[in-house]
């Protein structure tokens, strides 16, 4: 029987939403789901090599950012890049950088992004993946 598929349109470049995406990826990995992630606009910023580990922006409850980040550290939560990497090691995860999003952040080549990224693609890839997904999320 074919694995179920999760398609994730990842728009956010903030660590709170990226961390949430990492938790969901963990669930998908535990269930051996195939995962397609499409890195859109602000997420492409977070995937740039120079930003991935230094970007500490949060999207929600911004007045509690320091408390939030300290709590993640206290709980031993992995950085979102590590959560994504773990999922890639455990199941079939393909991470596609939207070509337009890459250019918005001056990323023209795959090498401009962290090594989690597998390719640069157009929106047609997302449409094709979403059409056959069992779960389709936008974060």
């Amino acid at each position: 029987m074919a694995n179920k598929k999760l398609t994730l349109a990842l728009f956010s470049g903030s660590v709170d939403k990226l961390t949430a995406a990492g938790v969901i990826l963990g669930g998908a990995a535990a269930e051996d789901m195939d995962v397609d992630i499409f890195v859109l606009l602000q997420a492409a910023f977070a995937f740039k090599k120079e930003n991935a580990l230094t970007n500490d922006r949060v999207a929600e409850i911004t007045d509690k950012k320091d408390e939030f980040l300290a709590s993640l550290k206290f709980l031993g939560a992995p950085h979102w890049t590590e959560a994504f990497r773990t999922a890639k090691e455990m199941t079939n995860v393909n991470i596609h950088i939207c070509g337009f999003a890459g250019k918005v952040w001056n990323g023209y080549k795959l090498d401009d992004f962290i090594d989690l990224a597998d390719d640069i693609c157009g929106i047609g890839e997302y449409m094709t993946s979403a059409e056959t997904a069992d779960i389709n999320l936008f974060i």
Binding site: V23, G26, G27, A29, A30, L75, G76, A77, T86
Partner: peptide
């Protein structure tokens, strides 16, 4: 015991 969700589930999977 040192991990939060989804850590235990992933540990079990491994």
């Amino acid at each position: 015991r040192g991990t939060s969700c989804p850590g235990p589930l992933l540990a079990a999977k491994k």
